[in-house]
């Protein structure tokens, strides 16, 4: 009898139940914006970056794509979503990841993604055309594909107000960003990924970017796009 019970218990222990996977649902991504420690208010020349430039943001358009969820630095799930965000249209900063088939139920501790379009998909006219992102094409004459980022505004240029336009595109300048976070995913995937973009981070770490000495217009300027690409890796913080 004892032997039988022992065998039975041992059998139970051996029989591992596979981790549950998401059956349906979504992970909601919520993004808000700050500049330094202040909430971003568009069109106001009141924010200061690390080099002392006082600036505003008039346009903040960007793509996010290739979401990868990690646990203990191990990739657990890839989500092919491509999201277009226009900070002036609040709804676009809140979107859903629904490509969750096979995702394991559990808690994820970090997420990575591209600020831009994943390299394999970044070709001219590869995305469905829409009026919302009508201005995001990156001309074929300059490499094709899409603008990953349009960050534009004005700044106080020694007493006069000037414009700046930080644009990123082409696969050489993909921003690989990520956040440490806690995303809890249950069987019906009601997870949330909450992030904050700090505009000031585009202008520092590792490179301090100064409008006055670096330049006002990054598109097509390899050195400026490289700086922005590397600075962009940590513009997001998880919440």
């Amino acid at each position: 009898m004892l032997i039988c019970l022992t065998i039975a218990f041992a059998g139970c222990r051996k029989k591992e139940v596979p981790p549950a996977t998401v059956v349906s649902g979504k992970i909601t991504v919520n993004i808000d914006y700050v500049a330094g420690n202040r909430p971003l208010i568009l069109d106001t020349v009141t924010f200061t970056n690390k080099t002392g430039n006082i600036y505003s943001v008039t346009t903040l358009h960007y793509y996010l794509s290739g979401f990868r969820f990690y646990k203990n630095n191990e990739l657990q799930h890839y989500c092919s979503k491509i999201a277009y965000v226009d900070a002036r249209i609040p709804g676009t900063s809140h979107f859903e990841l629904t490509e969750l088939s096979g995702m394991k139920v559990g808690t994820y501790d970090s997420v990575s993604f591209y600020i831009g379009i994943e390299p394999a998909l970044n070709t001219t006219n590869s995305l469905p055309a829409s009026l919302e992102n009508i201005g995001m094409g990156w001309p074929d004459a300059m490499g094709g594909g899409y603008h990953f980022l349009k960050l534009e505004g004005h700044w106080n240029d020694g007493g006069t107000v000037s414009g700046y336009a930080m644009h990123l595109g082409t696969n050489n300048y993909q921003v690989k960003a990520g956040v440490a976070c806690k995303v809890v995913v249950d069987k019906v995937a009601n997870g949330q990924l909450n992030m904050t973009m700090n505009i000031n981070e585009w202008y520092t770490n590792p490179y301090d970017y100064n409008f006055s000495t670096d330049g006002l217009f990054s598109m097509g300027v390899a050195t400026l796009m490289q700086k922005l690409t590397e600075n962009g890796a940590d513009v997001f913080r998880g919440k």
Binding site: E152, G153, H154, G163, Y164, L216, F217
Partner: peptide, 15 residues
Amino acid sequence: HKVNNLDPVMSLPAK
């Protein structure tokens, strides 16, 4: 004319 609210994308030709 380089005015205060010149569109930022015009900053290259203006500058």
